[in-house]
Computed example of a mutant assay.
Amino acid sequence: MARLQLKNVNKRWGSYVAVKDFDLDIADQEFLVLLGPSGCGKSTTMRMIAGLEDVTSGEIVLGGRNVNNLEPKDRDISMVFQSYGLYPNLSVYENIRFPLRVRKVPKEQHHEMVMTAIRMVELEPFMDRRPADLSGGQRQRVALGRAIVRKPTVFLMDEPLSNLDAKLRVSTRAQIKNLQSKLKTTTVYVTHDQIEAMTLADRVVVMNKGEIQQVGTPTEIYDNPANTFVASFIGSPAMNLVEGRIEGGTFTGDGITVEGLKAPSGPVTLGFRAEDASIVPSGGQIAAPVYAVELLGEASMITWRLGEQLVSVKTAKDYRAETGQMVEASVPAAICHLFDAETGKALPR
């Protein structure tokens, strides 16, 4: 069983706090994604799990055993890095075999174990090639095969797709998801890409400035963000956020008025998703000149500048409007989220 627990884990370098009070229980076979901007502490958290960084305080428990003081080699963890870390003088076969040699697995077991991993990452036609003769996607699959071959208790993946182009990211992402479903191995995956997080994860941990902002399924964090940071980080485009005031259940901000909201009077931030609002001929909650029109392929994006804020709404791909044209949008109260203007925390809906 590969249940992984982080109990009030902290990491400090002098006065700098990289990770603060990280408390999380990761279930056996779960695919967990740590998501956040650069410098938020997600890679540091992963490196502490791996044993590459010491824990300042708190506990890391794997399979019921405290591993704080164990060397990385003794934690039964495989890690896939952003850089492929392949040996240029070794073939694909020998690169994948290398961990078995290091761990002194009996030689008679090597071929079957290596070929199983090679088949899983679909590299049979390339197993005699060296890394220089492979594409970026193929090299990353070699790194995945090397992690798979010795059947670790936990996989750690640190931005494994960031060196790939957009097309390869999509195909390799699907392969990672498929592999994890077959291997049923507990996986912790680090990324700053919210699309990767949403498509891969069983649960997502959104981090900022070393602290957990929200933990939940992709659907939970998308539909009910805990604060304005999560709302602005999750989604493509991110949730529209407009500052204003509520008086008597009516929100008023620059260029927008929404009635029928249930919240105390005072300053708030109103949020709504671009795909939940709609363009209307008249009577909309937004009525302003168009700032930009973008064709996305499957839809068009209409953007307004409301005061200092840009607000977008998705509409049909064949919709046409000119910059500066007055266009209205329906933003009903039912689609709106409200956040405390001071703390950024979500208010009850």
Rank of each mutant, 00 (worst) to 15 (best):
A287R: 15
M301L: 10
Y319L: 05
I302F: 05
L295F: 15
Y319A: 01
A292W: 11
D318C: 03
L296Q: 08
V280H: 04
P281V: 04
P281M: 00
P281H: 07
K317E: 13
A316M: 15
E298W: 15
L296F: 10
S282N: 12
Q309H: 12
A321D: 06
V327D: 04
G283V: 06
K314N: 14
G297P: 00
A288H: 08
V313I: 09
A316E: 14
L306D: 04
P281N: 02
V311L: 04
S300I: 11
L296Y: 07
P281E: 08
G283P: 02
S300C: 13
P281T: 02
D318I: 06
E298P: 12
Q325L: 04
Q285G: 09
G307R: 06
T323F: 12
G297M: 01
Y291E: 10
E328Y: 02
A329K: 03
A299S: 14
V280W: 01
P281R: 09
W304S: 02
I302C: 00
A321I: 05
V293D: 03
R305L: 01
K317F: 15
I302S: 00
G297K: 07
S282A: 11
S282L: 13
L295I: 12
D318R: 08
E298I: 12
T323S: 11
G284D: 03
Y291G: 09
Q309W: 08
G307I: 00
G307S: 02
G307Q: 01
A287M: 13
V313S: 05
V293I: 11
Q309G: 09
L306R: 03
G307D: 05
T315F: 01
S300L: 10
G324H: 02
A316R: 15
Q325R: 06
V280D: 05
T323G: 11
E294D: 12
E294A: 13
D318F: 09
Q285N: 08
A288C: 04
L296P: 05
P281L: 09
A329G: 07
Q325S: 06
E298H: 15
S300T: 14
A292F: 11
I286Y: 04
T323E: 11
A299C: 06
V311Y: 01
L306G: 08
G284A: 05
I286N: 03
V293F: 09
P289R: 02
I286E: 05
A316H: 14
A321F: 07
V290C: 08
A287Y: 10
R305M: 11
L295V: 11
G307A: 03
R305F: 01
G284R: 03
Q285R: 03
E308I: 12
S282E: 15
A329W: 00
I286L: 08
T315Q: 03
R320M: 13
T323W: 10
K317Q: 11
A329P: 09
K314R: 15
P289C: 10
E328D: 07
G307T: 06
A288K: 01
S312P: 00
T303Y: 06
E328C: 07
M301W: 01
I302Y: 04
T303A: 07
A287G: 11
L295M: 14
Q325G: 07
Q309A: 11
M301E: 05
V327M: 03
Y319F: 10
M326A: 13
T303Q: 11
A288F: 00
T323L: 13
V290A: 05
V313H: 00
Q309S: 12
T303L: 04
L296W: 09
A316K: 15
I286P: 10
S312R: 11
K317A: 14
K317Y: 13
Y291I: 09
G297S: 05
G284V: 05
D318L: 06
E298C: 12
